[in-house]
Design a protein around this nucleic acid. Structure first.
Length: 270
DNA sequence: CTAAGGACCTGTCGGC
DNA sequence: TGCCGACAGGTCCTTA
């Protein structure tokens, strides 16, 4: 479910209900997520205020006085604001009980998500090796050219590599390459500077548009405020293998690339 | 160092 | 209707 636009949509949805609120309790029903939730997390945050919620890559960062609670939604996670007396379901693993009478609930059927802790003055190893944010100026044509130089890996795998640029997941990698007219299988080092510049712009545009629309609704994704995303209507290739290309009408091809479903137009993408 | 594949876990969907 | 395999938004870690 969550790619960067979905995570950002979630952040914006929950922030007004969580920022500046005091945490009364942290209730952990299932600590076994991708990594175990630290046992002392409750004692570190209970009684303290959430100063702000920030986002880095697809990680949500809850800033507290003595450190940061890091939340990742994995493949199937979501965060919602609910009344404090709402009964938990099977996959409702964690509640952040707020003094406002509401709670922030983490639901994650596949449990690929994570809840971790970063002490002030340290940087978690998961965050320390990340590339630039795609919408930042630091992610530009010159930078991407440097990353691609001499690389034989497929361009799609390269832009999905978080050490190169964060936040480009499978949906938006497919969409951006279609928009840029680049074959996803093409070796990264064999693409002209001009076309890589087009790819940078395409990535920025597709992500910005998706954030503006509130993310892509897949299955049951809803933001923290319960509103669905509307970007799905604008997808040109993702989930459309075999259907006609919106530009030329040829059936879209679908292949596996680094284990991920990859859809593109052989006519329009070279 | 790079590139590719496996692993984690559950739910859903399509085919027989 | 029921069962079984394939597949799903992520990404770290191990292996060549």
């Amino acid at each position: 479910m969550p790619e960067l636009p979905e995570v950002e949509t979630t952040r914006r949805g929950i922030a007004p209900h969580v920022e500046q609120r005091r945490v009364l309790a942290l209730q952990v029903r299932q600590p076994q997520l991708r990594w175990p939730i630290p046992e002392q997390l409750a004692q570190w945050i209970e009684g303290d205020r959430v100063q702000s919620i920030e986002r880095r890559s697809k990680y949500l960062l809850f800033r507290f006085a003595r450190g940061t609670m890091i939340v990742h939604l994995g493949m199937s996670g979501s965060l919602r604001i609910l009344a404090a007396d709402e009964a938990p379901g099977k996959h409702d693993h964690v509640d952040l009980v707020l003094e406002s009478g509401q709670l922030l609930r983490l639901t994650d059927p596949r449990r690929f998500g994570a809840v971790l802790w970063q002490e002030n003055g340290t940087e978690h190893s998961l965050l320390s090796k990340l590339g630039p944010e795609p919408l930042d100026e630091a992610f530009n044509a010159e930078y991407l050219q440097q990353c691609c130089a001499g690389r034989r890996t497929a361009i799609k795998a390269l832009i999905m590599n978080a050490a190169v640029v964060v936040g480009v997941g499978n949906i938006y990698a497919n969409e951006a390459l279609y928009a840029a007219g680049i074959d996803p299988r093409r070796a990264a080092g064999r693409i002209s500077a001009a076309r890589l510049e087009g790819l940078v712009l395409a990535i920025k545009q597709v992500l910005a548009a998706a954030i503006k629309q509130g993310g892509t609704t897949l299955r049951d994704f809803v933001g923290g405020d319960g509103k669905p995303g509307y970007f799905k209507q604008e997808l040109h290739v993702y989930g459309r293998g075999g259907e006609p290309c919106h530009q030329c009408g040829e059936p879209l091809s679908e292949v596996k690339l680094s284990q991920r479903s990859t859809v593109f137009c052989r006519q329009c993408q070279r």
